[in-house]
Design a binder for these strands. Structure first.
Length: 980
RNA sequence: GCGCGAGUGGCGGAAUCGGUAGACGCGAAGGUUUUAGGUGCCUUUGCCCUUGGGCGUGGGGGUUCGAGUCCCCCCUCGCGCACCA
């Protein structure tokens, strides 16, 4: 290997220096450049960086070998352990990157580069998540096609990231918008569409196996008819209703302002869209769903296999929301005189004797059939309280009026005062199955249709919400758990013995809560009025969007429903239409209808295909997939990005992600990204991965074994006295505060944003100091998982450090290496080994900030030494520095005489013998306060240490004439003299 | 309201096991190179009295020979969840 930039033809000797010198037009700097032509300046950094970036690219330095397939290079793998390091890929917006975006990318890059030097085969690459709303909105705003804006944005991102010297395997980069990529997104969709969840085997299976079970009669049809007696349409409907991707009419989140429906995960607690903050309304619509609920238990349980931050696991656990309890049927007769049952879910079936009324959600399907035409008598035979009737002459009118009120209430309004409950009596009484008591049925919006069965038995004695309602509506309150003597609250939720809980049929009295629950479930099941069960808060994933810029579904429709497009016809390409605008409405126009933009492309939608039974006319599915689809499996495509036969070669997957290499769950070894995807991308990706696992396409149970959330880089923004933002870069600090062009301004802390006029881009920092300084600064700012403020003026510290490293190895005047081959003195050698040891430990734990501090310490030691640096010190220093500042490290490495890149050089191990000290400083305290320090041999005996401590001037002074009560000795580091 | 996390110099942060609080960097002060500014280099830099002390990790209490670290109470900030039956 040749052609590093050192030697006689060094670029600094060439004309380029004077041509683009920072010095141009600055005589002082010119003079300095003459004096120290080989000083590490921003300009030199820029040239070094460009040189090495080109060389890495030319030589394919960071290309990771696969065990099989087109990237197979088994000899390059050898016996190196593998390591798969990954970032959450970016969404390439038109605004480009600011300094906050690459924080995680730089971190994974440092980690990957460190791991190369410890002998790992590292896979590290980057792609682009480029379908979705923001890209489409940007395109609509600028009047350009989303494909052209998105592709341009991707190119901008690539250039910005390349400038940072990130060690990516460029061959593996993907963009979700490429047909060659989304072909496989569609293919995976088809696998999901063509699967069902077998509850007995607790896994997804191909739909063909379900059909075979029906055909053979092994599995009875839902209504018991023979499969052969069913029409083709009936069979299709049975099968379609069990697919993991299915169409269904149900209440969904409709956002008129966005013009699309959204998944539950995309709606905030305030009932607004996560993107754009538009109001969201519940509407009954037919949409594509994914049966994520089938995986609720496994998504929950397998969190235990993962090395993820606890808060993220907790958020997923809460989102999945497992509740153990029981279903109980309360008999009731409808207005038509039909015998029906209100099925409730409760976590406290033991309190069923305390159920004094029932509540249905306003949308509950039984409400209409239970709403009487006339008010019945009150339970005590008297007139009904006005609260029950809402002042209306009939139950029908009361319910209709109540529904009107609740429909218009937003989620925020509903939560204003949770104590204040509303509802009306429907006029029917249900029967409590354990004691045959008649209890009134209400509708009330404190019961939600989306959870459990949408109906509850209300037990005011043991539930505060029910207590509040009962108080307002004058309903009886029966305690069925004995509260402690000193209990002075309302509903009692604690443990205790059951009371008031017996009838001729069953008694729970005297049992504690856990036993009572067991006993009542046994009774419910024996009498067929209920059953122990588990409920989840998790809902199925709403998967269709009324947008243009997304993956088309590989689906066509005939008059009976959806049909899969055969694999041979993939990809179903997104047609290049002129009118891609979504149909947007007034954000509060809840009566508006979703309309897919692709439906307007009639020559694309209307299609004649031969799907095996001759050419027939079909309509293409005009909805597109949500922008999460592409990110549900990209970690797999990186592994085998050019495979045209499969989304990923199983052998390659097993190598990079398999459980034999990556622990029980398998998966990516380190995945770094923000915490905002806790119940979005990270949940969806786990769900898809588990389906692929069930179908045998991947060997790993989980996509991401270890997750790390990097903090967000924040910034100060400044406003003038009218509240307008002023450019943060022009603000100056004064004794009393901050000033912009002489006028006082206010400072606030938060995100970086164009409108806040506080954006700093990596490009600016690279121009001013170079990419190595930028990387180093970002990594030294503080712990990776914490947010921290960007401070441009502090960046210079990292630059100075690199300059000093350079000066310790290269003569600023002659450009020659000053390193000598003589052995290092003992102290320096120890300093190097301490640094190696400390940096290794810090790197393993992603503590980059303290690793860098140790490197600075070592370098400061070398600077103070004021003598040529021995090679045995310079080389490890350059290696340890190289993950953070790879360009300058390559340059120094090559100037030290190495022809090969520093990337795969072997990082030395710390010599334990050199880490051990012969003498240490012993701290001498009197009554716990530091009074003296002694330099003592490590092996000093307790007796000798005691003697020397007591004799030390500091102790004698502090002790005065007081006697010594005791001496605590922790040899050799600490002595504490305790006076009487 | 419930749950989780965090409060350390002027600022970002360090202290991995209960044992020297403030590593490392920014900023600031002084010096030096330079015609000058800037850059580079050297020194100092928690606070308060001065050769040695006193006080210091949000506040108050406790355990301990010894507490930033452990326990109890309180305050502030950040994040998550929020009628989930």
């Amino acid at each position: 290997m040749t052609s590093t930039i050192n030697g006689d033809e060094d670029f600094l000797m060439s004309d380029t220096t004077t041509e683009h010198g920072a010095a141009a037009g600055d005589p002082g700097a010119d003079q300095q450049a003459e004096r120290v032509p080989y000083r590490y300046t921003a300009q030199m950094a820029g040239e070094i960086e460009a040189f090495w970036q080109d060389r890495w690219e030319k030589e394919g330095t960071f290309e990771a070998p696969n065990p099989a397939g087109p990237m197979a290079e088994p000899e390059k793998i050898g016996d190196r352990p593998k390591l798969y390091v990954m970032d959450m890929f970016p969404y390439p917006s038109g605004a480009g990157l600011h300094v906050g975006h690459p924080l995680g990318y730089v971190a994974t890059d440092c980690y990957a580069r460190y791991k190369w030097m410890t002998g790992h085969n590292v896979l590290h690459t980057m792609g682009f998540d480029a379908f979705g709303l923001p890209a489409e909105q940007y395109a609509v705003q600028t009047g350009q096609h989303p494909r052209s804006t998105t592709e341009r944005n991707i190119e901008g991102y690539r250039a910005q990231l390349r400038r940072l010297g990130l060690a990516y395997d460029r061959r593996r980069s993907i963009a979700t918008i490429d047909p060659a990529y989304y072909r496989w997104t569609q293919w995976i969709f088809l696998q999901i569409f063509n699967s069902w969840y077998d509850q007995d085997q607790d896994k997804a299976r191909p739909i063909g196996e379900l059909i075979a079970e029906y055909e053979s009669g092994r599995r009875p049809t839902p209504d018991g008819q023979a499969w052969s007696d069913l029409s083709e349409v009936e069979r299709r409907s049975i099968i379609d209703s069990q697919r993991l991707a299915y169409m269904s009419e149900q209440p969904v989140n409709w956002s008129p302002g966005l013009g699309t429906v959204l998944s539950n995960e995309e709606v905030t607690a305030e009932g607004r869209s996560e993107r754009g903050n538009f109001p969201v309304f519940k509407r009954n619509l037919t949409q594509w769903m994914m049966r994520m609920t089938a995986y609720a238990e496994r998504l929950l349980d397998d969190l235990d296999l993962l090395d993820w931050p606890e808060p993220i696991k907790l958020m997923q656990r809460n989102w999945i929301g497992r509740s153990e309890g029981a279903r109980i049927d309360f008999p009731v007769s409808t207005v038509d005189g039909e015998q029906q049952a209100i099925t409730v879910f409760t976590t406290r079936p033991d309190t069923v004797f305390g159920a004094t009324y029932m509540v249905l959600a306003p949308e509950h399907p039984l409400v209409d059939r239970l709403t009487r035409l006339q008010w019945p008598a009150a339970p005590d035979g008297g007139p009904l309280p006005v609260a029950w009737t809402g002042g209306q002459p009939t139950p029908a009118e009361a319910v209709a009026e109540y529904r009107r009120q609740t429909e218009t209430k937003s989620d925020v309004e509903r939560q204003v005062d949770l104590k204040e409950k509303t509802g009306v009596f429907v006029g029917s009484y249900a029967t409590n199955p354990v004691n045959d008591e008649k209890i009134p049925v209400f509708v009330a919006d404190y019961v939600l249709m989306g959870y459990g069965t949408g109906a509850i038995m209300a037990v005011p004695g043991q539930d505060q919400r029910d207590w509040d309602f009962a108080e307002q509506y004058g309903l009886p309150i029966i305690r069925t758990v004995q509260p402690p003597e000193d209990f002075d609250g309302e509903a009692y939720l604690g443990d205790g013995l059951a009371i008031n809980s017996s009838s001729e049929k069953v008694s729970l009295d005297g049992l504690d809560v856990a036993d009572a629950i067991r006993a009542i479930i046994a009774w419910l099941e024996a009498n067929s009025v209920g059953q122990g069960m588990v409920t989840y808060r998790l809902r199925d994933w709403l998967f269709s969007r009324q947008r243009y810029w997304g993956e088309p579904f590989p689906i066509v429709h005939d008059e009976h429903g959806p049909i899969a497009v055969p694999e041979s016809m993939l990809p179903v390409e997104l047609p290049d239409v002129d009118d891609y605008s979504p149909k947007l409405y007034d954000p509060n126009d809840k009566d508006s209808q979703p309309e897919a933009p692709l439906a307007r492309a009639t020559d694309w939608v209307e299609v004649t295909l031969d799907l095996g039974d001759g050419p027939k006319h079909y309509q293409r599915e005009a909805n597109v997939m949500p922008n999460w689809a592409g990110s549900c499996w990209y970690e797999l495509r990186y592994l085998d990005p050019t495979n045209g036969e499969l989304f990923c070669d199983p052998e390659v997957e097993r190598y990079w992600m398999g459980p034999e290499w990556s622990g029980d769950s398998g998966g990516v070894d380190l995945y770094v990204g923000g915490a905002e995807h806790a119940v979005l991308h990270l949940l969806y990706a786990r769900f898809w991965h588990k389906i692929l696992y069930d179908l045998g396409y991947v060997s790993s149970k989980e996509p991401f074994r270890r997750l790390f959330n990097q903090g967000m880089i924040q910034a100060y923004a400044f406003t003038d006295n009218r509240g307008a933002y002023v450019p943060a870069a022009e603000v100056e600090e004064t004794d009393s505060g901050w000033e912009w062009h002489g006028q006082p301004v206010n400072r606030q802390y938060g995100r970086m944003g164009k409108s806040l006029k506080n954006v700093v881009t990596p490009d600016e920092v690279c121009a001013q100091y170079g990419a190595d300084t930028f990387r180093l600064y970002e990594m030294s700012m503080g712990p990776l998982d914490q947010g921290r403020p960007w401070e441009t003026r502090a960046v210079v510290g990292s630059f100075r450090f690199l300059q000093r490293v350079w000066r310790n190895i290269v003569d600023e005047v002659t450009g020659a290496t000053t390193v000598v081959d003589t052995p290092a003195d003992e102290e320096t050698r120890k300093a190097v080994h301490r640094a190696i040891d400390g940096v290794r430990n810090d790197m393993e734990a992603l503590r980059f900030n303290t690793a860098i501090a140790k490197l600075i310490e070592l370098n400061n030691h070398l600077t103070k030494r004021d003598a040529p640096v021995p090679r045995e010190v310079a080389e490890p220093l350059v290696q340890l520095l190289s993950p953070f500042a790879p360009h300058i490290a390559e340059e120094l490495w090559s100037r030290l005489g190495h022809a090969e890149t520093v990337t795969f050089s072997s990082l030395p191990e710390a010599d334990p013998a050199l880490l051990a000290e012969e003498t240490v400083v012993c701290v001498v305290q009197v009554a716990g306060k530091l009074r003296d320090r002694l330099e003592v041999p490590v092996s000093i005996s307790e007796d000798e240490l005691r003697e020397r401590a007591l004799a030390s001037p500091g102790v004698r002074r502090a002790l005065g004439d007081r006697a010594v009560r005791t001496v605590v000795i922790r040899a050799p580091r600490l002595v504490n003299v305790v006076p009487a």
